[in-house]
């Protein structure tokens, strides 16, 4: 064993494997991805009237009563900051978590005073990424009355749109059922009211 005799293979093999895994491999993946799945590979961007209005995978911030609201987002400086993903990291016994949930419950109730249904938990807890595009079907159902009132729509009209933007568990058992908030709100706006 001697150190200098190991130096040449260490450096050479390192450089060659770097070229293989750091240049050729990502280039190959990019080539296949752009050829076979160009839409997904470039971010599943949604366009309206020829203009990019968002991504089907990345949530946006909604606070107006006439839109469905998504999960609370802990990103800074503004919620749903695509350039800075992250969660709140508040621990379960942190008083700040209790206060935040309480404030969000109050905001939901203030926006829809007549609604006495219990507030679904995903609507008042911050997501892991801060960019969660989805809410649970229960969280959508909770908001239907408010949306219908704000837009002068009938409850069944809004329910139909929610159903159209709901995805079941994948293959019937993977993950959870969910409603894509951005797509749902774009569908609402498309009704023209």
């Amino acid at each position: 064993m001697n150190l200098s005799s190991q130096l040449r293979p260490a450096l050479t093999i390192f450089v060659l494997l770097t070229a293989l895994t750091g240049v050729l491999y990502p280039a190959a993946v990019t080539g296949i991805a752009q050829g076979v799945f160009p839409n997904q590979a470039n971010g599943s961007v949604i366009s309206k009237d020829g203009r990019a209005v968002g991504s089907g995978l990345i949530g946006q911030n909604f606070t107006e009563p006439r839109y469905f609201w998504g999960r609370p987002s802990a990103t800074g400086p503004m919620p749903y900051n695509g350039a800075g993903s992250g969660g709140s990291n508040l621990g379960p016994t942190n008083p700040a978590l209790f206060d935040a949930v309480k404030t969000r419950v109050a905001a939901l109730k203030a926006a829809d005073p007549g609604n006495t249904a219990p507030v679904p938990v995903d609507l008042v807890t911050a997501s892991g990424s801060g960019l969660d595009p989805d809410i649970s079907p229960e969280a959508a159902a909770y908001q239907i009355g408010r949306i219908a009132k704000a837009r002068n729509l009938s409850i069944p009209q809004v329910e139909a749109l929610v159903a159209a933007n709901t995805t079941g568990k994948q293959w019937g058992f993977l993950g959870e059922a969910r409603v894509n908030v951005l797509k749902l709100n774009l569908a609402l706006d498309a009704l023209g009211k």
Binding site: R71, V101, P118, V119, D132, D134
Partner: peptide, 14 residues
């Protein structure tokens, strides 16, 4: 704090 359940969805994705 007023949520419908105690399911720990804080920090989790829908």
């Amino acid at each position: 704090a007023g949520a419908a359940s105690s399911l720990n969805m804080e920090g989790k994705e829908t």
